[in-house]
Amino acid sequence: MPYQIDNRPADARESLYFPEIFRAIGLVVTTFWRNAFFSRDPNTDILERDRTRNRVTTLQYPEEKQPYPAGYRGLHRLVPRPDGSPRCVACYMCATACPAQCIFIEAAEVEGDPIEKYPKQFVIDELRCVVCGFCVEACPKDAIRMDTGEHPPPTYEREGQIYDIRRLLRGAPVSYEKDPWLVRPSKLTDAAQKANRAAARPYGTAGSDEYSQTPGFSVRELTAEARARGEGGK
């Protein structure tokens, strides 16, 4: 029961209407005075707002956004290497794991390299995506992340929700110490690297998971450490 109503009959004073109305006017005038003459605390965390004077709880949405919790799964991004090309090696693990089948990858071979592949096309249909995060879990190269903290922005056409590699490849580059390009230098020319870096758009970090962003974080090393401690099989 949220609250109890005192359901007694009105006494003589209350059935006059006016005295109670005057009191209520006082209440509304106080509220008006507070809200009209004192400025609003623009803290986006509404519960933390200073509401001693101005009591407005409005959040001016496009300008002010509520902070998302850590680990919030936002819009995907393809993680770049330090030279600006994607970390992705076009292994199709994410496309295979995807329950909504919204990822399309076209692989191509890196010229002059007998093993390495790269994604010639990497397309995510954000309208089909169910935001489950399985692609991020499946990726062996930490090449796809959902740490942007953004929604897919609304568009007028369906085509606008189909993100290709030019829109997905953005954010801070990530490099681990066992990454091959740290051993053999990038094949891209300096100019191409520079252009790649300039093209990479920044992204909000409000909702990103700190743990997954830590540079130097390596699942393989963690496994090795666990093995050294005698945990896990083999």
Binding site: T31, F32, V56, T57
Partner: peptide, 10 residues
């Protein structure tokens, strides 16, 4: 605007 101020809105 006034009704908003009376009802804790903007």
């Amino acid at each position: 605007k006034w009704s908003a101020a009376m009802q804790d809105r903007i």
